[in-house]
């Protein structure tokens, strides 16, 4: 039996949220799942729950282009308190942009474990979850 992870999606696109919810629910990919409309709301939640490992997501899927606080700004703020988190958080960038500038910028940031280009499909999610559970396999690749 696979261990189920806590997943978090930060994206302002309601259609994207609808689709992600549908995939995760249908394939029973997560233990818990959070959906946030922008970086600021997500940041606020994480700050509140930082000492509560059960309520902290294992993987965050972060959109770049969002109102109020976009993905980059969220990362900049998250960096300030990630050390005081009760457990480590893996972050994946998810964006419709295949612009090389966005990819380049993502590589510069050590908190980012990977960059996923939309549309986000089932196999992408399964891959990320497998990598998280069996990091050695990933390394051997």
């Amino acid at each position: 039996m696979k261990k189920l992870l806590n997943l978090c999606f930060i994206d302002d696109d309601v259609i994207f949220q609808f689709m992600v919810k549908r995939i995760v629910t249908c394939h029973n990919l997560a233990n818990k799942m959070w959906l946030f409309n922008d970086g600021e709301v997500a940041l606020k939640y994480l700050l509140e729950q930082q000492q509560n490992p059960l309520e902290i997501p294992d993987i965050i899927f972060l959109d770049i282009n969002m109102p109020i606080m976009d993905g980059w700004q969220f990362l900049a703020e998250f960096k300030k308190f990630k050390a005081s988190m009760a457990k480590p958080v893996t972050i994946y960038m998810v964006s419709s942009s295949n612009d090389s500038r966005d990819l380049g910028q993502a590589k510069e940031i050590e908190e980012i474990s990977g960059y996923l280009v939309k549309p986000l499909k089932l196999e992408h999610l399964e891959q990320v979850i497998n990598d998280f559970l069996e990091p050695q396999v990933n390394r051997n690749c």
Binding site: I15, M19, I64, S95, S96, K118
Partner: peptide, 14 residues
């Protein structure tokens, strides 16, 4: 890359 690709990818998925 953001504003056009995003709805197109959504359409694909849907």
């Amino acid at each position: 890359s953001h504003n056009l690709r995003s709805p197109v990818s959504n359409l694909n998925m849907l």
